[in-house]
């Protein structure tokens, strides 16, 4: 039995602007990520990595092509359904963290669950677990402007892990971290993904990319290369 496909991009094109200002950020990108699988995206800056991720996360609409997350075709969803899918299914780590300054660390991490109707106590408990897995439970009561850039980054990652997510999308999640902290972050991400999530990691760091099952190289909006490690039999069954 092969694990189910949780993320699928089918011939996705994305054009920004028009006329003279037209930018083809993606030119027909296709990929599939299965449960338990982490793929890394590498490529020069401006090659379309963030665009690919925001489209996979339903934050941007493709100009053409289809995006399927956990069996839903995002371009066909209504606004409200899309918002719910994003809250419940997709964990997203932004390049610039996107924390809410007026909420404490633990409140930031608990927020997606509370928005989803989980009661405050349970949400907080799940948030505390997630902070623990990032090794930063001691920061729970601080505000984002009271912690360092590297710590904010780990809070953002903890938030992306929280609750019953199926899909994890991370844009340069370890950019501001030293290499030892980066490694503990990728270890924690990998562990979550091994538990049945599908993940896409955008990174410049080959050391991090090497934690992925496959490495896709993107150039000028196209996936031009793919590196594979052997599939781990315990995860993908005998097929």
């Amino acid at each position: 039995m092969t694990a189910e496909v949780l993320i699928e991009l089918i011939d996705v094109q994305k054009t920004y602007g028009n006329g003279e200002n037209e930018v083809h950020a993606l030119r027909g990108a296709s990929l599939q990520v299965r449960a338990g699988e982490l793929i890394a995206i590498m490529g020069a800056s401006g090659s379309g990595k963030s665009t690919l991720l925001t489209i996979a996360g339903g934050l941007e609409v493709p100009t053409s092509g289809d995006v399927r997350i956990n069996d839903h075709s995002l371009p066909t969803l209504r606004q409200k359904e899309l918002a719910r899918l994003r809250r419940q299914t997709i964990g997203y780590v932004f390049q610039d963290f996107n924390l809410i300054p007026s909420l404490t660390v633990v409140e930031n991490v608990a927020l997606p669950l509370e928005l989803d109707g989980m009661n405050a106590r349970n949400a907080r408990r799940a948030a505390t677990d997630s902070l623990e897995s990032m090794g930063i439970s001691d920061l729970a009561k601080r505000f984002p402007d009271e912690i360092s850039g590297g710590q904010r980054q780990r809070v953002a990652i903890a938030r992306s892990f929280v609750g019953p997510r199926r899909v994890l999308l991370a844009d340069e999640p370890t950019g501001a971290l030293d290499s030892k902290t980066s490694e503990s972050v990728i270890r924690a991400m990998r562990k979550r993904i091994d538990g049945g999530l599908a993940g896409i990691l955008v990174t410049h760091d080959a050391k991090l990319a090497a934690w992925a099952d496959r490495i896709l190289v993107i150039r000028d909006g196209q996936i031009v290369d793919e590196l594979k490690t052997e599939l781990r039999p315990e995860q993908f069954g005998a097929n």
């Binding site: 990998r190 050391k207 590196l227 490690t229």
Partner: peptide, 16 residues
């Protein structure tokens, strides 16, 4: 580059 990346993946897998 492909070869070196694969070597890096192999080392990382062993480390994991």
């Amino acid at each position: 580059r492909v070869q070196t990346m694969q070597a890096l993946q192999g080392l990382t897998k062993a480390k994991r």
